[in-house]
Design a protein around this nucleic acid. Structure first.
Lengths: 144, 144
DNA sequence: TTGCTCCTCACGTCACGTGAGGTGGC
DNA sequence: TTGCTCCTCACGTCACGTGAGGTGGC
């Protein structure tokens, strides 16, 4: 019941989805259950939940990943979050520091790979459509 | 039973999908029923069916369109096919020729619009991920 | 004749949408 | 107290997947 806690409808609205989706993601374990919540009580979320949900929806809608695939990716992120906490608490061993950073970088570049493959496919589709458009424009120009 | 008629499995394989999908698309009227076919007999398709199906799947998977939205787009294409036939039979009136070409161009540019909006969204996602990657790479470099 | 692919139900699944009936916080 | 949003079932829907049991062409 803190100051800037959000309710489920507000989180959904900001992320461009519905409360039902949030409850479903919680049900299948894709989103963490909203903090300590008595059964039947309202769910409350921190601001950061909006970004987390937005990220999931982007990967799902823009890259066409299934919720199962998102769970796999997110398992890696969870591991990264653990390392992150370790990091924040101060890691003195420079070798360990490198390991943590490398792993984080690996997670991100895996996503970038997926993004770029998508961009290529869509670029191919764009080329096909552009070619069709150019052919017709030429016919129109010739008709002048 | 002609020379290069394809069976449903072959059409599906070439388009990267399954026979069930083709039957379902036929059932909802997204694909035309395979020519004159006795009830229970095998479906046969022309080569062109592969490209037609591939086009539908690309719009669906890459742009995230629903089958209902594909039907709308395809209704416009059907109208274009009619005009196309009129065109092939020779249109003498130059005003009418222009109309036909303009309409075809409109259909294609509508799709190009959808493609470009997608590219922008994915480009945004790529930028976000690239920024994250760069931040970590800088930390790695500083550690040296 | 033997495989293989095909056929038509028809039920299952994934990712939610949509009420039904009820409780809780500004 | 009145709205509004929230809650939990639970059934519906979209786009197929997946057998069940049977028929048809190289």
């Amino acid at each position: 019941v803190s100051e800037n806690e959000l309710r489920i409808g507000e989180v959904a609205r900001r992320a461009g989805t519905t409360p039902r989706t949030i409850r479903y993601y919680e049900e299948i374990g894709l989103l963490p259950p909203a903090d300590g919540r008595a059964s039947g009580a309202h769910r409350t979320y921190a601001e950061s939940a909006v970004e987390q949900l937005t990220g999931l929806l982007q990967l799902k809608d823009l890259l066409g990943l299934s919720l199962e695939e998102l769970k796999d990716l997110q398992a890696a992120e969870a591991a990264r979050a653990v390392r992150r906490r370790e990091w924040d608490e101060g890691v003195d061993d420079p070798v360990r520091r490198r390991e943590i950073l490398q792993a984080s970088l690996g997670d991100i570049e895996r996503k970038l790979d997926l993004v770029r493959r998508r961009q290529e496919s869509i670029g191919q589709l764009e080329d096909d459509l552009s070619r069709q458009a150019r052919r017709i424009k030429k016919l129109l120009a010739d008709a002048d």
